[in-house]
Simulated assay, not measured.
Amino acid sequence: MELKVKDVVRFFNVPENTIYEWIETRGFPACKVRGQFRFNREELLEWATTTGTRTSARFFPDNCAQQERADIGSALETGGIFYLVKGQNKQEVLRNVVGLLRLPEKLDREFLLQMLLAREALASTGIGQGIAIPHTRNPIVLAVDKPMVSLLFLEKPVEFGAVDGRPVHTLFTLVSPTIRVHLNILSRIAYVLHDAAFRRMLEERAKVLDIAQQIRRIEDSLGTQP
């Protein structure tokens, strides 16, 4: 879906001039069509997540069919939370992560690993504050019944080339049945990661139940956001 400047202003809750400034100085993803800027929602989500820029609740697709609506809590229950994931470096960590994911049996995990590594070679998916969201160049869309978010705590922090230079201790992965669901979940992850209490829980490697409850609390608050 192509977005116009007025849409992006609403999504980020900033003046229009700020959008133009971001395009000039912060690598804000945009293209010109007949002299007018147009924006891709997925690219904006990745930019916002990577740069730590806050988005509003309006960023969440509001025209999804009911079967394409998703929440992190349910997706995380499907994908699982894993502790003490081993790895001495980024490649070893990603190999172990791919091995843990609850993927369809026939999926070529080695191919997926190489896709993730190729994406990391372009630019790190470490978004700062010890967190990374490994993903391929395009959304991981597979023949699954429902989206899966996996949360993985590393045995020890690993250098990831993150934007703030800090080693990564926590990873999120996302597998979706459609691109629309992918965008919905990714936008929610970006939103949840702005919650200071939730980030502290990640640093402390909180228990599964506590993490799930905090995510539910944050997502429940979305209904009250302007």
Rank of each mutant, 00 (worst) to 15 (best):
93 V>A: 01
118 A>P: 01
170 T>E: 01
127 I>S: 02
28 F>A: 05
86 K>P: 06
45 L>Y: 05
37 F>I: 01
78 T>A: 13
51 T>H: 07
53 T>I: 15
62 D>Q: 15
5 V>Y: 01
23 I>S: 02
120 E>D: 10
86 K>D: 08
205 R>F: 10
78 T>V: 11
31 C>Y: 14
92 E>Y: 11
1 M>S: 11
25 T>P: 03
171 L>W: 07
222 L>E: 04
47 W>R: 02
84 L>R: 13
64 C>V: 14
178 T>S: 12
59 F>T: 13
158 V>C: 11
150 S>T: 02
174 L>R: 04
199 R>Y: 09
154 L>V: 04
42 E>K: 15
112 L>G: 02
141 V>R: 03
53 T>L: 13
197 A>N: 13
209 L>W: 09
44 L>S: 04
218 I>S: 03
185 I>P: 09
173 T>S: 02
189 I>L: 14
66 Q>F: 12
135 H>S: 07
203 E>D: 12
22 W>Y: 04
129 Q>Y: 12
92 E>H: 12
152 L>N: 04
89 N>K: 03
12 F>W: 03
4 K>E: 00
206 A>W: 09
196 A>R: 08
159 E>L: 14
174 L>K: 06
169 H>A: 11
166 R>E: 10
164 D>K: 12
104 P>N: 07
107 L>A: 06
69 R>H: 08
169 H>C: 08
203 E>W: 15
169 H>D: 03
73 G>D: 00
215 I>N: 01
125 T>Q: 04
121 A>G: 10
50 T>E: 09
135 H>C: 06
133 I>F: 14
96 N>E: 10
202 L>K: 05
100 L>I: 05
17 N>E: 07
80 G>I: 15
108 D>C: 04
194 H>Q: 05
133 I>M: 14
104 P>L: 08
53 T>C: 12
210 D>K: 05
128 G>K: 05
178 T>Y: 06
151 L>Y: 09
181 V>S: 09
139 P>A: 12
166 R>S: 13
95 R>P: 01
8 V>F: 04
69 R>N: 10
83 Y>I: 06
81 I>C: 13
197 A>R: 14
72 I>A: 08
26 R>H: 11
189 I>Q: 01
185 I>Q: 00
208 V>H: 13
72 I>F: 11
179 I>N: 07
189 I>H: 00
121 A>V: 12
7 D>L: 06
66 Q>A: 14
60 F>N: 00
154 L>A: 01
159 E>I: 14
203 E>T: 15
42 E>H: 13
137 R>H: 11
173 T>F: 06
118 A>N: 06
169 H>E: 03
50 T>K: 15
79 G>F: 12
57 A>T: 02
124 S>K: 01
224 T>I: 14
73 G>M: 07
20 Y>M: 00
72 I>S: 05
25 T>G: 04
211 I>K: 05
152 L>G: 03
210 D>Q: 12
192 V>Q: 04
94 L>Q: 05
98 V>T: 08
206 A>Q: 07
134 P>R: 09
67 Q>S: 15
110 E>G: 11
22 W>E: 03
223 G>N: 10
40 N>A: 14
131 I>L: 14
209 L>T: 10
106 K>W: 02
24 E>C: 13
106 K>P: 00
16 E>F: 03
19 I>M: 01
207 K>R: 11
58 R>Q: 09
161 G>V: 12
